[in-house]
Each structure stands twice: as structure tokens, then as C-alpha cells.
């Protein structure tokens, strides 16, 4: 697993208070990991802070699963 993937998973575990085993690439923040819309906004902000990127709202809307977050950040992280 890439360093980025590990950091993304750690943020998700911390912010959503979920078990490591639940954080699979397919897991949806809202459907599988119990996040509400505010939790999702907070996650995106944490990703922005951790990886020093700015994620525009229209792209943030497409980040709904763990895997989507990892691939977006692997592509855009500085």
C-alpha cells in the first residue's frame, strides 16, 4: 500500500471512528462507514490539510469511497 493510501486510511479511521478492517477500497463513507454530510466535508478538509491540496467542490462530490479518495490524492497530492 502506498504511503498516501495509508495516511488516507488513518484519517478515515480517526475521523469516522471505524475499525481498520472496515476501511476497504470499496467502502462508501456514507453507506458503509456511517458518515453524514458534515463528516464527509470534514474528511475532505482533512485530506486537503494533510496532502496540501485544494479539492474543488465539484471534484469532492466524486469522492465517495475510500478507493476514490486514495486515487484522487495519489494523482493530486504534492
Amino acid at each position: 500500500m502506498s504511503e498516501i493510501a495509508e495516511k488516507v486510511r488513518a484519517i478515515i479511521i480517526d475521523k469516522l471512528g471505524v475499525e481498520e478492517s472496515e476501511v476497504t477500497p470499496e467502502a462508501s463513507f456514507t453507506n458503509d462507514l456511517g458518515a453524514d454530510s458534515l463528516d464527509t466535508v470534514e474528511l475532505i478538509m482533512e485530506f486537503e490539510k494533510e496532502f496540501n491540496v485544494s479539492i474543488p467542490d465539484d471534484q469532492a462530490e466524486n469522492i465517495a469511497t475510500v478507493g476514490q479518495a486514495i486515487s484522487y490524492l495519489e494523482e493530486h497530492a504534492k
Binding site: 458534515l38 466535508v41 470534514e42 478538509m45 486537503e48 490539510k49
Partner: peptide, 9 residues
């Protein structure tokens, strides 16, 4: 501005 979405609530 990087205010947390939970700030106000």
C-alpha cells in the same frame, strides 16, 4: 478559511 464543518453546530 479552513473552518471545521462542526464548528458552528
Amino acid at each position: 478559511p479552513r473552518f471545521n464543518p462542526f464548528f458552528i453546530p
